[in-house]
């Protein structure tokens, strides 16, 4: 199932008129459990909250006499459901919310670690290097031939490879361990630093995939003489880890190992390059 365009069920923890107040500890544990399950929770209290939109609303509270009120949006646009949580612990509340989520077609969470490139358009110059680099069709272009992240769930978890080919340090992975890839400020020093800019072609004498391809071909011919497949796998792991360390590209070993075969890589790289070139050509002639 495509992950895009699914909405999160909005849960409101209501403690106003007609409902009992939770004590702070209960509020914390209820909220933490709901957040850990992936829900968005509005805690009613003093001050404003975000305005409503058209998505379903589930209002939880300890209502007077255990009686959850019936209500509907005056415009009939928003589906509002009230549920009484009196006597339920945080697990019970989560089970209740989960049932409501299923019946409201809201997004199911926790199936995929959200790892994908985020483009800083203040910095991006639309050079299309990321488009030509990524083999997994994560990038595409919008109607105005601008770079766009399109298939973010195709991105290889924990791999920040393309952020290192971007000459402007415009590609972020917010869950990356260090800056500026994690979104921390980009200093002049970092922008000019080879390590950040990583001219991968220069570094690897071709491109990173070419390098991997060569290595893997060399390894394959060596491994073909091996009898033990376990040993071969160990060697391959060692070889790839060394490559990643040498190049200082911080690509996790699982990602390197999951790269497609040499021919497929060549095909994909050519296709990605052609897409990027087509965009650049169209822009020049436009």
């Amino acid at each position: 199932m495509a992950i895009a365009d699914e909405t999160t069920l909005r849960v409101v923890l209501y403690e106003g008129e007609g409902a009992a107040t939770l004590d702070a500890a209960e509020r914390v544990s209820t909220l933490t459990t709901l957040l850990e399950k992936g829900y968005a929770v509005t805690c009613a209290g003093e001050g404003a909250v975000a305005p409503a939109d058209d998505s379903a609303l589930l209002v939880l509270g300890r209502f007077e006499n255990g009686q959850a009120p019936e209500a509907e949006d005056a415009n009939g646009k928003v589906a509002i459901r009230f549920r009484d949580i009196d006597g339920l612990d945080s697990e019970g509340i989560t089970a209740l919310v989960e049932t409501e989520r299923e019946s409201s077609n809201a997004a199911q969470h926790g199936e995929w670690k959200p790892w994908f490139p985020v483009i800083d358009y203040d910095r991006c110059t639309n050079c299309m290097q990321c488009l030509s680099f990524c083999l997994f069709d994560v990038y595409g272009t919008d109607d105005d031939q601008g770079i766009q992240v399109q298939n973010n769930d195709n991105c290889k978890t924990n791999c920040p490879a393309c952020s290192r080919v971007c000459p402007e340090a415009a590609i972020m992975f917010p869950k990356y361990k260090s800056g500026p890839i994690n979104g921390d400020v980009v200093s002049d020093g970092e922008l000019n630093r080879e390590k950040m800019k990583i001219d991968i072609s220069a570094l690897l004498g071709g491109d990173v995939y070419q390098m991997l391809r060569d290595r893997s071909q060399r390894s394959r011919s060596r491994f073909s003489k091996e009898r033990s497949s376990d040993k071969a796998l160990g060697e391959r792991t060692k070889c790839l880890t060394k490559l990643a360390a040498e190049a200082d590209i911080d690509i996790p070993i699982e990602v390197l190992q999951s790269l497609p075969g040499a021919d497929e890589i060549a095909q994909k790289a050519a296709a990605a390059n052609a897409r990027a070139q087509a965009v650049l050509d169209a822009r020049q002639s436009g």
Binding site: R27, V41, W112, D153
Partner: peptide, 27 residues
């Protein structure tokens, strides 16, 4: 989160903004 819960202030809490952005959540 604990401080917000104790404060009596209204607030919104989301599980993971990155996940919401990944799914281009209308929220």
């Amino acid at each position: 989160l604990k401080s917000l819960c104790k404060s009596g202030q209204a607030f919104e809490a989301v599980a993971d903004l990155c996940e919401m952005a990944a799914r281009r959540d209308p929220a």
